[in-house]
């Protein structure tokens, strides 16, 4: 429970936050804190400076463009997303957010934090890969965008580098999405999960099977095609107390089929 000493800043603007992050090597953004504070309790991570993003309203917006493109600020919480009329344009987002952990965690945890922490068991990294989100990353030097599929680099490692912030996520229009998971108890941590999106071609992203979501593109949503695509991915998931590698490979296939089916059946 007891954190190492840390300095704290609550910037008033994104620019200020970026400046602090740039000035201090050991600075880290603090979003919902639902992961970061816990790793600090365990003293697994000990940033020198916490840059609290909670005061930055610029990062909280959820907007629906005229073309159906959804833009979600990195600091939008799961509760914000689940309750947002705009976000309903892509219903799967709110639906999945509502199955993450519990009310308290959903009230604080943010979409930005979820993808930036990139815990392989998190719900949103595979989902955002499947729906083809783009991440906007800002630094004092300017902004860049990275496709979700390129955003995730390793466990707790993403394209957001030192001195940078994820500011928003952009999600194209679409409705034919699915998500399936086997979790530790109802609405619990994922043992394996899969997200699918069939808007044009089918894209399936598999979670919990590697350090980053594994994206496959089956030829169709037919069961055989999906299974074949998953098999073709040559998964080598880790074994842990909840699942053997073999079991995860199997689950990935079954869940991919289910997510794809849900995407296909969705009107």
């Amino acid at each position: 429970m007891l954190l190492r000493e840390v300095e704290y800043a609550r910037p008033a603007s994104v620019a200020e936050a970026l400046a602090i992050l740039k000035q201090h090597d050991g600075a880290r953004a603090l979003a919902g804190g639902q992961t970061l504070i816990n790793v600090m309790k365990a003293r697994v991570a000990s940033p020198d400076v916490l840059v609290d993003l909670n005061g930055l309203d610029d990062l909280k917006g959820i907007e629906l463009g005229s073309d159906g493109t959804l833009t979600i600020g990195a600091m939008a919480t799961y509760t914000d997303i689940a309750g947002s009329a705009e976000a309903r344009a892509r219903p799967i987002l709110g639906e999945v957010c509502l199955t993450i952990a519990d009310v308290q965690v959903r009230n604080r945890g943010t979409i930005g934090g979820n993808v930036c922490s990139n815990d392989p068991t998190n719900h949103l990294p595979p989902l955002l890969c499947a729906v083809g989100a783009e991440m906007t990353i800002a630094s004092e030097d300017g902004e860049r965008t990275v496709a979700a599929a390129e955003f995730f680099l390793g466990v707790y490692l993403t394209a957001v580098g030192p001195g940078e912030l994820l500011t928003k996520l952009t999600i194209p229009a679409g409705k034919h999405d699915g998500f399936a998971a086997v979790t530790l108890g109802a609405d619990g941590t994922c043992i394996a999960n899969a997200a699918a999106s069939l808007n044009g071609s089918l894209r399936v992203a598999l979670g919990c099977v590697d350090a980053v979501p594994i994206v496959v593109q089956p030829a169709s949503a037919a069961e055989d095609a999906v299974r074949e695509a998953v098999r073709g991915a040559g998964l080598m998931p880790p074994s842990d107390v909840h699942a053997s590698s073999e079991y995860r490979i199997h689950l990935a296939e079954v869940l991919a089929v289910r997510a794809a089916r849900q995407a296909a059946e969705r009107s």
Partner: peptide
Amino acid sequence: CDTGNCGACSMIVDGQLVKSCMLL
């Protein structure tokens, strides 16, 4: 707990239910 799971520390902060062990 020390991982934010148990909710024994739940409080309402500015109208919102949170686990106060994950807030400084």
